[in-house]
Design a protein around this nucleic acid. Structure first.
Lengths: 364, 364
DNA sequence: GTGAAAGCGCTAACAA
DNA sequence: TTGTTAGCGCTTTCAC
């Protein structure tokens, strides 16, 4: 392994530290007075039966020597590592963090471990991770959208040639087989906007995310459809684009709220942005939801703890994670190679920021 | 590998799916008309030199065959996996998420990958992960506090017997060698409370975390010291204990604010709790900082985006992560086996929730 | 029910 | 500069 980030190419060797001698199956076998095969049978409960007494001797030897099986050797021999790669844009983003948490939970219960990488919205880095993970012989790969343009990414295309089980969340990569899981983004944007209209709003702004993310594009499309259907105009000043984070929402809202014909409601394409919007409103002295109604998108945990609690379009994060793992594992454990694509529904969670009466005690 | 969570003991084999034949060094060597050794020399840029033409032929063969080195085999041979294990209580907790992000970043730049596990505040699970990670032959281990009682944990004690480089953050495990990194928790609690006093508060409550976490205990001790020094009494009603999360802070604050002799200020031992406090205050109609001053602890990103922005005791998250990785890597790459313990300073970040004038535009 | 032995794919002596 | 070869530690035929 080398110095260059995940790119074994040159540099001095690592770990030249003197290594303590390892305890191996051979040692265990010797101490137990049996063969390595039997030791393996004991450890794996198969594939051959072992006499109770022999087993006892082996187990005694194992604990006596503090023997710890070497998963690397086993992986080499069995061609399975028990490792699953997960590439997310940013694990500190609450939405991805939540997704990762459930995924990890699910994998753990099935005996797999998680190899995590942040793509940091960078194609190069995403590619580097996919490559490294593939080399690490992960049993499966979970990929979450960095940006849609990655389509031509060499590494991702290589994936197509690989038969490593793959599940993509949030986006699909054409040409690459695997399961894709999405949510009804357009529909969510539509519902959010509609709900704002139900509260009587007409000048509804949209704090949209970067144009490179289909999630942002689709959610914004939903907003557009609702506005169009209601025959409410969307002057340019009502549609802002910014980063998908708090900062982005904050800046957009500042601009929006300072303009002369400021909106009476804002649909933000992410909860993070909505949090930024709330902060801007607070700073400018606007009261939510009276002076400004706000709806977010994602349903991250903290959306329940904003002041006031944020109305949002909740993604079925848990279900997505579970379905993703389920699909991945079933492919790993013998499923056929398929290319399916599923769209999960989103749900409007009415809280206080839109103007709905909200039982603040009954927050679930 | 088996069905039981990270416990290879029994069950049917995994991945019995027909595997595509792999391309190996041998294939590359054959096609390039050379030996496997040379192929290895090319891939690793050493340890022997290779003639330019030979190198070219090998590289051609590699790309022609879409050869992908098998990191498992390499790891077995070299006794280094390039993998670092990280065990956190909960990766979706913003503080740990941030820590994990920086750690991942740091590791990536040094050519390592992250094997992540959530201990979910459970000793059993933490132990299971430590065991699994050790078996996976991680080159190093990063451990973040689940709870202090784990001290007797068998798996952790096993660690003591291992010579796997280890860095502990947030807590130290007596008897286990390795580097420990902490922050000045007591001091932070003291500073926070003092600052609240500077704003003229006397009835200062403390929303503390679970009694099993030394971090919570220490921060609360700092609060106590400040109160004691100021000769302000701490009636029982002013000290609440709850989970370290938003929900916990929310519930504690509700109780505190509804009592007859409610506090005029609250020090929460985590930002998450502080966010819950703000939510409760908002719900009850108290204006922050006029009716209630609040200070948190951690300095998580979202603390800047609460309404109003949260004054907090910031932990040097980035530096902690960097130092941790640095210490770990230096041990991996030949450093001596040491048991050092460092305490990093915390910093009071003055924002609006404590009553300080806050330049809301200048938020960094 | 047990054991001998052949590798998994790679690296690095060691020899040429 | 290149090639031969011996394993790394484990699992699993295949024979007994």
């Amino acid at each position: 392994m080398e110095k260059r980030p995940l790119e074994p190419v040159d540099g001095p060797a690592r770990g030249s530290r003197p290594r303590k001698k390892r305890v191996t199956v051979d040692d265990v076998a010797r101490l137990a007075g049996t063969s390595t095969a039997v030791v393996s049978y004991v450890m794996n409960n198969g594939p051959r039966p072992v006499a109770p007494e022999t087993r006892a001797r082996v187990e005694a030897a194992i604990s006596q020597l503090s023997y710890r099986p070497n998963a690397v050797a086993r992986a080499l021999r069995r061609s399975e590592t028990g490792l699953i790669g997960l590439v997310v844009p940013d694990n500190s983003n609450p939405f991805f963090a939540e997704l990762a948490r459930v995924i990890e939970e699910e994998l753990f219960s099935r005996g797999y471990m998680l190899l995590l990488g942040n793509s940091v919205q960078s194609h190069a880095r995403e590619a580097a991770y996919v490559k490294a993970l593939l080399e690490s012989q992960v049993d499966g790969l979970l990929l979450i959208s960095a940006s849609e343009e990655t389509i031509e990414s060499e590494a991702l295309l290589t994936l197509a040639a690989t038969d490593v089980p793959l599940v993509m969340l949030d986006r699909r990569v054409p040409g690459v087989e695997g399961t894709s899981l999405f949510v009804a983004n357009e529909n969510g944007g539509y519902e959010a906007t509609l709900h704002l209209m139900e509260h009587g709003h007409e000048r509804i702004a949209c704090v949209s995310g970067p144009n490179s993310l289909t999630t942002a594009i689709e959610r914004t499309a939903g907003y557009r459809r609702a506005m169009d259907e209601a025959r409410f105009p969307i002057p340019e000043s009502l549609l802002t684009f910014s980063a998908f984070d708090r900062e982005g929402g904050y800046r957009s809202a500042l601009k929006l709220l300072r303009s002369e014909d400021r909106p009476s409601a804002i649909f933000a394409t992410s909860d993070q942005q909505a949090i930024g919007v709330i902060r801007a409103a607070h700073q400018l002295g606007f009261f939510i939801p009276y002076d400004l109604a706000v709806i977010g998108f994602d349903g991250i945990p903290e959306s329940e703890y904003t002041a006031p609690p944020l109305t949002t379009i909740r993604q079925p994060t848990d279900e997505m994670a579970r379905r993703a793992v389920e699909a991945l594992i079933s492919r790993i454990e013998g499923g056929p190679r398929t290319s399916s694509s599923e769209v999960l529904p989103v749900e409007l969670i009415k809280r206080a920021s839109c103007g709905c009466p909200f039982d603040t005690n009954g927050h679930s």
